[in-house]
Design a protein around this nucleic acid. Structure first.
Length: 153
DNA sequence: GCCAACGTTGGC
DNA sequence: GCCAACGTTGGC
């Protein structure tokens, strides 16, 4: 079972939304590197939910991958901001996964704390200017993150 | 609102 | 295939 970090702006889609819905289709990924990471996800993998573009940014919860290899429907929807006119239904360019809410952490683990505890090599999200919205998390780092999230700040 | 990082596009 | 221009993300 692998671990991932997935970013979303809480104003757009945050842990509150996921908790209320239970599961969600993680659509709208329009970056090839992030898409390729998503393609290697397996059912049962876990993902840290990271709130971006908010104060303070950081990890707030845990999700589980429950379905992979799904075609992202928003690419064919002209009304969607994720519409991709260049993508053809017989050769979809973008896909996505379905995730399930597991739990919130007892506290937010801020980017500042992450920066103090990890190098950019250990945890990609701490690299300044990292725009990738989906990142792999090594098992070592995942273990440390889970420990930090249970401990007091 | 600024700007660093970096992906994408298009002219040549 | 190079590279300048442009667009997006996201921290600050």
């Amino acid at each position: 079972m692998a671990h991932w970090l997935m970013k979303s702006e809480p104003e757009v889609y945050g842990i509150d939304h996921l908790e209320a819905e239970g599961t969600t289709l993680w659509d709208g990924i329009r970056n090839y590197q992030a898409r390729n990471f998503m393609r290697t996800m397996q059912v049962g993998d876990q993902a840290f939910f990271y709130h971006s573009n908010t104060q303070p940014p950081g990890i707030v919860g845990l999700m589980e991958v429950i379905e992979t290899g799904l075609t992202d429907p928003s690419q064919f929807d002209p009304a969607s901001k994720y519409h991709d006119p260049a993508s053809k239904p017989d050769a979809p360019r973008w896909d996505c996964v379905r995730l399930r809410f597991l739990h919130r952490f007892p506290r937010l683990l801020s980017l500042e704390e992450l920066r103090n505890a990890f190098t950019p090599e250990q945890l990609g999200v701490v690299r300044r200017g990292n725009r990738l919205s989906i990142l792999p998390v090594s098992e070592d780092s995942a273990e440390r993150l889970l420990e930090m999230l249970q401990a007091a700040p």
